[in-house]
């Protein structure tokens, strides 16, 4: 299904968005705001506010890369329901595109470039 053009914010996938999208896939089928945040911290070590994760999820859903539904509430949540996220076909394609682009660029780097690697010294 094509993402709804009216709610699309533009199909560019930001770096943090890509991370969230990948984590949603990793956590399938139990990806929701807090678990995604914990996974980000666990996997990358970078701090992210819950609000930042929610904001990213919100954008991804608007772009059509994610779908969500409300699941049942639990005791720790004071009986409140959580919103579970799934990757859409468009989301998968966006990830693939990024992946392919990266691979393609990676493969184009000549082997020679990896010889005589510089370690932050000057070019000379």
């Amino acid at each position: 299904m094509e993402p709804n053009l009216l709610v699309m914010k533009g199909t560019n996938l930001g770096e943090f968005e890509e991370l969230i999208l990948l984590i949603v896939g990793v956590l399938y089928p139990d990806a929701y705001g807090l678990s995604i945040r914990q996974e980000i911290i666990a996997q990358t070590g970078r701090k992210a506010a819950i609000g930042a994760v929610h904001s990213g999820l919100n954008r991804l859903e608007k772009k059509g890369y994610l779908l969500s539904k409300l699941a049942d509430g639990t005791h720790e949540r004071g009986g409140r329901r959580k919103r579970l996220f799934h990757i859409t076909a468009a989301g998968k394609r966006a990830l693939e595109k990024n992946h392919e682009l990266r691979n393609s660029l990676w493969n184009q780097i000549p082997d020679l470039a990896w010889k005589n690697l510089l370690y932050g010294d000057s070019f000379e």
Partner: peptide, 16 residues
């Protein structure tokens, strides 16, 4: 429309 999930996440976080 976002309040329930956000509040849920926050409470869960708080308990943790």
């Amino acid at each position: 429309e976002l309040l329930e999930e956000i509040k849920g996440d926050l409470h869960e976080f708080y308990v943790q």
